[in-house]
Design a protein around this nucleic acid. Structure first.
Length: 482
RNA sequence: GGCCCGUUGGUCAAGCGGUUAAGACACGGCCCUUUCACGGCUGUAACGGGGGUUCGAUUCCCCCACGGGUCACCA
């Protein structure tokens, strides 16, 4: 049978990392075996609907390459793929359950329900619905319906026994039926609850693997009972442990934690984000860590999923992002960095490609660019102490001597290329019989005005150009002379 | 509170009765080197506690502790 998984977000305007990871695993489970990955929008809660949120979902899936085979925007044979457009369907199925005795109308008011909770014997707020409306007779129901008294439809849970289901990650889980509330299937506004819509849609859309967060683990027996009530076969359940912010709290929008969009804005690459989150809760059978989506499709397996929560570690993501930047084809990399460079540099005469090349091995996120290239634009104020470097065996005196010596050499160079600069400088070093660092460190320092820079003396000189190089060397001499 | 789930270094994690308990990130050291970085080598660091079962438990069972989830006309 063809594997079909579905990503079923509700459009609340935000794609958090845990959600995206769920989508990834759903995609991989389907694609690993040539199955279908479906997008379904769960907008049954009118209150929480956020304008434009659906676009965030589309954009994210597109950027990450988790392309869906069916969905509101691409169509498919099981549509519509937006729950609010399927409303009539749910009522029809709920009626079916009423007919076969697995559900019933409930006309209880909000007030009565509330009093139920506060009046519960032990004072706990965890009382189940007392089934007040379960055995209403037909006449009464018809009368209430005729009088337009608001109602909900509730699922009738078995009074005794227990329900067991198999989860692909957590194994066999059993819950006493007495734990199960007669949950609402259809709300008084006519919309289905998530619990009901999910089951109906998953069945109607032929979903074979239901992948979702472990917060649904304890309500899964209710879903199974619903499948049973319809006479349907329940799907394979794959429950996922949460992605945490720290040991005791989940990553969430409330805490202002990073969403996918935030991470992209912070200079992370979509592929790196996907790669990193793939490893949050799943591990391959070997020690590979860097994966393309294609490789992931190949290597992913449900058996590698973990049961315990994992903490999102931005430090490791940053490392991985750096790995992606380093490994990237230069043209692709340049297309990412170019706008950042243009943004950071006012001096439009600089060779952005050369600067970008210097940065590629050093960047961890795209947003590191501005800090690393600022000195190209303008020589910062710096202290002559920078010229003192123990390992390079330099002092301010040596630095002054080296800068003074290289100045005429620079001035004499006609074709300003990196190799030319390098060769002439090496000749000078040989003549003076000094260590490379004693000449090159002072030059690098004079050109950058910083303790560290992306690139050494010759590279910086090449990029800055002859005039600017000479100007900065003179400036260095001036500072050291005082 | 009832029920469900989880617990290997700071973090991600391998392990599925017998291992010197992998690997990665981070951190420290060394090497390379015109700085920083990259790269290479290397070091510190872990089985929550207590009982069983067993010749032998990180691995199996029970209890405890801690953490999380759930008990909505939210998903």
């Amino acid at each position: 049978m063809e594997i079909r998984t579905r990503f079923a977000p509700s459009p609340t305007g935000y794609m958090h990392i845990g959600n995206l990871r769920t989508a990834l695993y759903e995609y991989l489970i389907a694609k690993k075996d040539g199955g279908k990955f479906i997008l379904r929008i769960e907008d049954t809660d009118k209150e929480r609907y956020v304008e434009g949120a659906v676009d965030v979902i589309y954009d994210t899936l597109k950027m990450t390459g988790l392309n869906h085979d069916e969905g509101p925007d691409v169509g498919g044979e099981y549509g519509p793929y937006i729950q609010s457009e399927r409303q009539g369907l749910y009522m029809e199925y709920a009626q079916r359950l009423i007919k076969n005795g697995n559900a019933y109308f409930c006309f209880c008011t909000k007030e009565r329900l509330d009093s139920l909770k506060s009046n519960s014997g032990d004072g706990s707020a965890f009382a189940h619905y007392d089934r007040h409306c379960m055995n209403l007779d037909h006449e009464k129901i018809a009368e209430n319906l005729d009088n337009n008294i608001p109602y909900v439809i509730r699922q009738k849970m078995p009074a005794e026994g227990s329900t067991t289901f198999e989860d692909a990650v957590y194994g066999s889980i059993t819950v006493d039926n007495s734990e199960l509330d007669d949950q609402i299937l259809i709300k008084s506004d006519g919309m289905p609850t998530y619990n009901f819509a999910n089951v109906v849609d998953d069945h109607l859309m032929n979903i074979t693997h239901v992948v979702r967060g472990s917060e649904y683990l304890s309500s899964t027996p209710k879903y199974n009972l619903l499948y049973d009530a319809f006479g349907w076969t329940a799907p394979t359940y794959v429950h996922l442990p949460p992605v945490m912010k720290d040991a005791s709290s989940k990553l969430s929008k409330r805490n202002g934690d990073a969403s996918f969009q935030d991470l992209v804005e912070k200079g992370y690459i979509a592929e790196a984000i996907i790669n990193y989150i793939a490893l949050l809760g799943w591990s391959p059978s070997d020690n590979q860590e860097i994966f393309t989506l294609e490789e992931l499709k190949d290597k992913f397996s449900i058996s590698g999923l973990s049961k315990s929560p994992s903490i999102f570690d931005p430090v490791k993501l940053t490392w991985m992002n750096g790995e992606y930047i380093k490994a990237m084809d230069f043209e692709k990399y340049f297309s990412f960095v170019k706008p950042k460079l243009e943004d950071a540099l006012k001096n439009k005469g600089l060779d952005l490609r050369k600067i970008a090349a210097l940065l590629q091995k050093r960047l961890e996120t795209l947003n590191d660019v501005s800090n690393m290239v600022d000195f190209f634009d303008e020589l910062p104020q710096y202290s002559t102490e920078l010229y003192i470097h123990k390992k390079m065996k330099t002092t301010e005196e040596i630095a002054l001597d080296s800068l003074s010596a290289c100045l005429p050499v620079f001035e004499a160079i006609d074709s300003w290329t990196e190799t030319e600069i390098h060769d002439r400088l090496m000749e000078l070093i040989e003549q003076k019989a000094i260590k490379n660092g004693q000449m090159l460190w002072p030059i690098r320092t004079a050109l950058s005005g910083k303790a560290t820079s992306a690139g050494g003396a010759t590279e910086l000189a090449d990029i800055l150009g002859k005039d600017e190089t000479i100007r900065r060397i003179k400036k260095g001499i001036e500072l050291l002379t005082k």
